[in-house]
Protein backbone atom coordinates (compact mmCIF):
# COMPACT_ATOMS: atom_id res chain seq x y z
CA UNK A 1 0.00 0.00 0.00
CA UNK A 2 1.24 3.46 -0.94
CA UNK A 3 0.62 5.85 1.90
CA UNK A 4 1.04 9.59 1.71
CA UNK A 5 0.25 11.49 4.84
CA UNK A 6 0.29 15.28 5.06
CA UNK A 7 3.33 15.78 2.91
CA UNK A 8 3.94 19.50 2.70
CA UNK A 9 5.93 21.33 0.05
CA UNK A 10 6.35 25.07 -0.21
CA UNK A 11 7.48 27.37 -3.06
CA UNK A 12 7.22 31.11 -3.20
CA UNK A 13 4.15 30.85 -5.42
CA UNK A 14 2.77 27.40 -4.64
CA UNK A 15 1.96 25.33 -1.56
CA UNK A 16 1.07 21.68 -1.47
CA UNK A 17 -0.14 19.33 1.22
CA UNK A 18 -0.84 15.81 0.00
CA UNK A 19 -2.58 12.90 1.70
CA UNK A 20 -3.46 9.81 -0.31
CA UNK A 21 -3.66 6.03 0.08
CA UNK A 22 -3.43 3.61 -2.85
CA UNK A 23 -3.91 -0.16 -2.41
CA UNK A 24 -1.23 -2.48 -3.76
CA UNK A 25 -2.01 -3.59 -7.28
CA UNK A 26 -4.52 -0.82 -7.84
CA UNK A 27 -4.64 1.60 -10.73
CA UNK A 28 -5.11 5.10 -9.37
CA UNK A 29 -5.93 7.89 -11.79
CA UNK A 30 -4.94 11.37 -10.66
CA UNK A 31 -7.10 14.04 -12.26
CA UNK A 32 -7.67 17.73 -11.80
CA UNK A 33 -7.11 21.14 -13.36
CA UNK A 34 -3.69 21.90 -14.80
CA UNK A 35 -1.40 23.72 -12.41
CA UNK A 36 -3.18 22.01 -9.55
CA UNK A 37 -0.20 19.90 -8.49
CA UNK A 38 -0.72 16.52 -10.17
CA UNK A 39 2.79 16.28 -11.55
CA UNK A 40 4.30 17.60 -8.32
CA UNK A 41 2.60 14.76 -6.47
CA UNK A 42 4.27 12.23 -8.78
CA UNK A 43 7.64 14.01 -8.53
CA UNK A 44 7.40 13.85 -4.76
CA UNK A 45 6.70 10.11 -4.78
CA UNK A 46 9.62 9.57 -7.18
CA UNK A 47 11.92 11.62 -4.94
CA UNK A 48 12.55 14.70 -7.13
CA UNK A 49 10.83 16.90 -4.57
CA UNK A 50 11.40 16.57 -0.83
CA UNK A 51 8.47 17.28 1.47
CA UNK A 52 9.25 19.39 4.53
CA UNK A 53 7.05 17.25 6.73
CA UNK A 54 4.71 14.27 6.58
CA UNK A 55 5.23 10.62 5.79
CA UNK A 56 5.55 8.71 2.54
CA UNK A 57 5.75 4.93 2.57
CA UNK A 58 5.22 1.92 0.36
CA UNK A 59 4.19 -1.29 2.10
CA UNK A 60 5.31 0.41 5.31
CA UNK A 61 8.82 1.06 4.01
CA UNK A 62 9.67 4.73 4.54
CA UNK A 63 10.54 6.23 1.13
CA UNK A 64 11.59 9.69 2.28
CA UNK A 65 15.23 8.94 3.15
CA UNK A 66 15.77 7.20 -0.20
CA UNK A 67 17.34 8.85 -3.26
CA UNK A 68 15.27 8.67 -6.47
CA UNK A 69 17.29 5.75 -7.79
CA UNK A 70 16.80 3.75 -4.60
CA UNK A 71 13.03 4.10 -4.54
CA UNK A 72 10.93 1.18 -5.75
CA UNK A 73 9.42 3.47 -8.34
CA UNK A 74 9.54 3.43 -12.17
CA UNK A 75 8.56 6.36 -14.34
CA UNK A 76 6.98 7.11 -17.67
CA UNK A 77 6.67 10.71 -18.82
CA UNK A 78 4.57 12.29 -21.50
CA UNK A 79 7.63 12.85 -23.65
CA UNK A 80 11.41 12.34 -23.84
CA UNK A 81 11.31 8.94 -22.19
CA UNK A 82 13.82 7.44 -24.57
CA UNK A 83 17.39 8.32 -25.38
CA UNK A 84 17.42 8.90 -29.12
CA UNK A 85 20.88 7.41 -29.69
CA UNK A 86 19.97 4.05 -28.10
CA UNK A 87 17.99 1.21 -29.68
CA UNK A 88 14.66 0.16 -28.24
CA UNK A 89 16.13 -2.82 -26.38
CA UNK A 90 18.95 -0.69 -24.98
CA UNK A 91 16.46 1.88 -23.76
CA UNK A 92 14.60 -0.91 -22.00
CA UNK A 93 17.82 -2.38 -20.64
CA UNK A 94 18.59 0.88 -18.88
CA UNK A 95 15.84 -0.13 -16.46
CA UNK A 96 17.92 -3.11 -15.38
CA UNK A 97 21.44 -1.75 -15.50
CA UNK A 98 22.31 1.77 -16.62
CA UNK A 99 25.74 0.45 -17.64
CA UNK A 100 24.02 -1.70 -20.31
CA UNK A 101 26.28 -4.61 -19.38
CA UNK A 102 23.56 -7.22 -19.18
CA UNK A 103 23.80 -10.97 -18.85
CA UNK A 104 22.14 -13.18 -21.42
CA UNK A 105 19.26 -13.82 -19.03
CA UNK A 106 18.75 -10.12 -18.55
CA UNK A 107 18.66 -9.52 -22.30
CA UNK A 108 15.99 -12.23 -22.44
CA UNK A 109 14.00 -10.32 -19.83
CA UNK A 110 14.32 -7.19 -21.97
CA UNK A 111 13.04 -9.04 -25.03
CA UNK A 112 10.21 -10.46 -22.99
CA UNK A 113 9.21 -7.02 -21.73
CA UNK A 114 9.17 -5.63 -25.27
CA UNK A 115 7.06 -8.60 -26.21
CA UNK A 116 4.64 -7.86 -23.40
CA UNK A 117 4.01 -4.34 -24.66
CA UNK A 118 3.44 -5.62 -28.18
CA UNK A 119 6.74 -4.62 -29.69
CA UNK A 120 8.10 -7.94 -30.77
CA UNK A 121 10.56 -7.33 -33.61
CA UNK A 122 11.17 -3.73 -32.69
CA UNK A 123 14.28 -4.43 -30.64
CA UNK A 124 16.76 -2.82 -32.98
CA UNK A 125 14.73 0.27 -33.83
CA UNK A 126 15.80 3.66 -32.63
CA UNK A 127 13.26 6.10 -31.18
CA UNK A 128 13.41 8.22 -34.32
CA UNK A 129 12.15 5.23 -36.33
CA UNK A 130 9.11 4.59 -34.13
CA UNK A 131 5.73 6.23 -33.75
CA UNK A 132 4.75 8.14 -30.64
CA UNK A 133 2.65 5.21 -29.38
CA UNK A 134 5.50 2.76 -29.91
CA UNK A 135 7.89 4.99 -28.03
CA UNK A 136 5.55 5.08 -25.05
CA UNK A 137 5.33 1.28 -25.16
CA UNK A 138 9.11 1.07 -24.96
CA UNK A 139 9.05 3.33 -21.93
CA UNK A 140 6.41 1.11 -20.38
CA UNK A 141 8.55 -1.94 -21.08
CA UNK A 142 11.44 -0.30 -19.28
CA UNK A 143 9.24 0.41 -16.27
CA UNK A 144 8.15 -3.25 -16.24
CA UNK A 145 11.58 -4.77 -16.66
CA UNK A 146 12.96 -2.78 -13.73
CA UNK A 147 10.75 -4.88 -11.49
CA UNK A 148 9.87 -1.91 -9.34
CA UNK A 149 6.46 -2.41 -7.72
CA UNK A 150 5.16 1.12 -8.24
CA UNK A 151 4.87 2.69 -11.67
CA UNK A 152 4.21 6.39 -12.05
CA UNK A 153 2.81 7.58 -15.36
CA UNK A 154 2.70 11.32 -15.97
CA UNK A 155 0.20 12.11 -18.75
CA UNK A 156 1.73 9.21 -20.66
CA UNK A 157 -0.65 9.13 -23.58
CA UNK A 158 -1.71 12.75 -23.94
CA UNK A 159 0.21 13.10 -27.19
CA UNK A 160 -1.55 10.16 -28.81
CA UNK A 161 -4.75 10.00 -30.84
CA UNK A 162 -7.90 9.07 -28.87
CA UNK A 163 -8.20 5.55 -30.31
CA UNK A 164 -4.60 4.74 -29.56
CA UNK A 165 -4.98 6.23 -26.09
CA UNK A 166 -7.75 3.77 -25.37
CA UNK A 167 -5.54 0.83 -26.45
CA UNK A 168 -2.68 2.04 -24.30
CA UNK A 169 -4.86 2.41 -21.23
CA UNK A 170 -6.07 -1.14 -21.73
CA UNK A 171 -2.48 -2.32 -22.11
CA UNK A 172 -1.52 -0.64 -18.83
CA UNK A 173 -4.53 -2.20 -17.15
CA UNK A 174 -3.74 -5.72 -18.34
CA UNK A 175 -0.04 -5.41 -17.55
CA UNK A 176 -0.59 -4.28 -13.98
CA UNK A 177 -2.93 -7.20 -13.42
CA UNK A 178 -0.44 -9.71 -14.82
CA UNK A 179 2.54 -8.28 -13.00
CA UNK A 180 0.83 -7.14 -9.82
CA UNK A 181 2.24 -3.68 -9.85
CA UNK A 182 0.64 -0.54 -8.48
CA UNK A 183 0.06 2.22 -11.00
CA UNK A 184 -0.44 5.91 -10.28
CA UNK A 185 -1.21 7.84 -13.43
CA UNK A 186 -2.10 11.45 -14.11
CA UNK A 187 -4.51 12.02 -16.96
CA UNK A 188 -6.45 15.00 -18.22
CA UNK A 189 -9.25 13.05 -19.84
CA UNK A 190 -10.85 11.28 -16.81
CA UNK A 191 -13.78 9.84 -18.77
CA UNK A 192 -11.39 7.61 -20.72
CA UNK A 193 -10.20 5.85 -17.60
CA UNK A 194 -13.42 5.57 -15.61
CA UNK A 195 -13.89 1.94 -16.64
CA UNK A 196 -10.41 0.63 -15.79
CA UNK A 197 -9.27 2.69 -12.80
CA UNK A 198 -9.91 1.28 -9.33
CA UNK A 199 -9.44 4.60 -7.74
CA UNK A 200 -9.50 8.22 -8.71
CA UNK A 201 -7.86 11.11 -6.85
CA UNK A 202 -8.82 14.66 -7.63
CA UNK A 203 -5.97 17.11 -7.08
CA UNK A 204 -6.40 20.86 -7.04
CA UNK A 205 -4.60 23.72 -5.31
CA UNK A 206 -1.89 21.34 -4.14
CA UNK A 207 -4.24 19.01 -2.26
CA UNK A 208 -6.04 15.76 -2.87
CA UNK A 209 -9.55 17.06 -2.38
CA UNK A 210 -11.33 13.83 -3.22
CA UNK A 211 -10.40 10.17 -3.48
CA UNK A 212 -12.56 7.14 -4.16
CA UNK A 213 -13.97 5.16 -7.06
CA UNK A 214 -14.06 7.15 -10.28
CA UNK A 215 -17.85 7.38 -10.15
CA UNK A 216 -17.90 8.66 -6.60
CA UNK A 217 -15.33 11.31 -7.35
CA UNK A 218 -16.61 12.50 -10.69
CA UNK A 219 -20.34 12.36 -10.21
CA UNK A 220 -21.23 12.35 -6.54
CA UNK A 221 -18.76 14.67 -4.93
CA UNK A 222 -20.02 17.88 -3.40
CA UNK A 223 -16.88 19.97 -4.00
CA UNK A 224 -17.75 22.64 -6.60
CA UNK A 225 -14.26 22.48 -8.14
CA UNK A 226 -14.90 18.92 -9.23
CA UNK A 227 -18.28 19.77 -10.63
CA UNK A 228 -16.73 22.62 -12.56
CA UNK A 229 -13.99 20.34 -13.84
CA UNK A 230 -16.12 17.44 -14.99
CA UNK A 231 -18.70 19.86 -16.36
Amino acid sequence: MLLIDHCRLTWPDFKANYSLRVETGALCAVVGPSGGGKTTLLHMIAGFEKPESGTLSLDSHDLLPLAPSERPVALVFQDHNLFPHLRADENVALGLKPSLKLSADEWLAVAEALDAVGLKGFKKRRPGEMSGGQRQRVALARALVSGRPLILLDEPFSNLDPGLRRDMIELVDSLRRKRHVTVVMTIHTPEEIVDVADQMAFVANGEVIASGTPKEVLHNHPDPRIAAFSG
Binding site: A46, G47, F48, A67, S69, N81, L94
Partner: peptide, 13 residues
Protein backbone atom coordinates in the same frame (compact mmCIF):
# COMPACT_ATOMS: atom_id res chain seq x y z
CA UNK B 1 15.11 17.72 -21.56
CA UNK B 2 14.21 17.81 -17.87
CA UNK B 3 12.54 14.40 -18.24
CA UNK B 4 15.83 12.81 -19.15
CA UNK B 5 17.49 14.29 -16.10
CA UNK B 6 14.71 12.82 -13.94
CA UNK B 7 15.11 9.47 -15.65
CA UNK B 8 18.83 9.62 -15.01
CA UNK B 9 18.14 10.31 -11.37
CA UNK B 10 15.54 7.64 -11.09
CA UNK B 11 17.57 4.99 -12.91
CA UNK B 12 20.64 5.92 -10.88
CA UNK B 13 23.02 6.93 -13.68
Amino acid sequence: PAEQWRLAQSLGF
